[in-house]
C-alpha cells in the first residue's frame, strides 16, 4: 500500500469486498468521519447509492455522494474506486468544488428574501383590504336630521361590492330607526358602475318595502344619464341638491 506514505492531500481508504476499511491515510483521518466500513464515512441518504455502485466491484469515476466530515458535517464529494486483483478497493473521496455550493447558498438567500418580501406584500394587501372594507362601511353614514328625516350621504364610486355592503348595513340601520323619509345624497359620489346601480336598485326596493319614502339628491348630470339607462321603475323623488331637498321636506313637515 504505497499510498499511505505519500501524504497525498486527498482522503484515501483501502477497503475489502465487505466494504470494511482496512487502511486510511492521514488526510482521511483528519478530514472525514472514522468508522468500520466505508459506509460510515458516507451520509445515510447517500448510502444506497454508494452500496449499489461499490458492490459492482468495477472502477468508479466521480460518484457524487455526501460524505461525513470528522466534525459530523456533510461534504458534497466525488468518490473514486479502483479494485485490485486481490479484491482490495482503493477509495478516494474528493470534496467537490465549493463554487457551486456558494452559488446555491446565494440562491437560497435570494429565495428567502423573496419569500419575506412576499409576506410583507401579503400583509400589506390584507391591511389594505381591511381598510377598504372599513372605508366602504363608513361611506354611507346614517344621520338622523329630524324625528322623521334621515340623511345618508354616500361617498366615492359605486360598484357591486360596495352597494351590497351599503345595502346590508343601511337596511338594518333604517329598520331600527323611527324615521319615515330617507334622503340619499349623491353629491360626493364619483363613477357609478352598472353593477353598482343594480345593487342600488335592490337596496331602494328593500327600503321601499320597509315603508320609507325616498328622496335622491345631488345627482350629477352624468349620474342622471346612467340612471335613465337603467329604466328604474321605483317611485322615487329626485331633488337637485341636498339644500332643496331639505327645504322641501321641512316645509311639508311644518305646514
Amino acid at each position: 500500500m504505497p499510498f499511505l506514505k505519500t501524504g497525498l492531500a486527498i482522503p484515501i481508504f483501502a477497503i475489502n469486498a465487505e466494504l470494511e476499511i482496512l487502511k486510511v491515510n492521514d488526510m482521511a483521518k483528519s478530514m472525514l468521519a472514522n468508522g468500520l466500513t466505508i459506509l460510515d464515512v458516507i451520509e445515510e441518504e447517500s448510502r444506497p447509492k454508494a452500496v449499489l455502485n461499490l458492490l459492482r466491484f468495477e472502477p468508479i469515476q466521480a460518484l457524487e455522494i455526501n460524505a461525513l466530515s470528522s466534525t459530523g458535517s456533510i461534504l458534497l464529494a466525488d468518490l473514486y474506486v479502483a479494485w485490485s486483483e486481490e479484491g482490495i478497493g482503493e477509495v478516494l473521496i474528493v470534496e467537490k468544488d465549493k463554487t457551486m455550493q456558494k452559488v446555491s447558498e446565494q440562491l437560497n438567500k435570494l429565495r428567502n428574501r423573496l419569500n419575506d418580501t412576499n409576506f410583507e406584500l401579503l400583509e400589506a394587501k390584507e391591511t389594505a383590504e381591511e381598510l377598504l372594507h372599513q372605508n366602504i362601511k363608513l361611506s354611507s353614514p346614517f344621520i338622523e336630521v329630524t324625528e322623521t328625516i334621515a340623511l345618508i350621504p354616500i361617498y366615492g364610486g359605486l360598484n357591486q361590492t360596495k352597494t351590497e355592503l351599503i345595502a346590508s348595513t343601511l337596511s338594518r340601520r333604517a329598520y331600527l330607526s323611527e324615521v319615515e323619509t330617507l334622503i340619499l345624497d349623491f353629491t360626493a359620489v364619483g363613477h357609478i358602475e352598472e353593477s353598482g346601480l343594480q345593487g342600488l336598485e335592490s337596496l331602494l326596493r328593500v327600503l321601499q318595502l320597509l315603508g320609507f319614502s325616498m328622496v335622491i339628491a345631488g345627482l350629477h348630470p352624468q349620474h342622471v344619464k346612467e340612471w335613465n339607462d337603467m329604466n328604474f321603475t321605483l317611485d322615487i323623488r329626485f331633488m337637485k341638491s341636498l339644500k332643496s331637498a331639505m327645504e322641501n321636506l321641512l316645509a311639508v313637515q311644518n305646514s
Binding site: 444506497p48 447509492k49 449499489l52 455502485n53 467537490k96 429565495r111
Partner: peptide
C-alpha cells in the same frame, strides 16, 4: 437519476428552482 449517478446535485438544484 441522482442515485444512478446520471445527474449531479447542481442539476437537481436547477430542477428544484424550475419546479418552484
Amino acid at each position: 437519476l441522482w442515485e444512478r449517478n446520471e445527474i449531479t446535485v447542481a442539476d437537481e438544484h436547477l430542477a428544484t428552482a424550475i419546479c418552484d
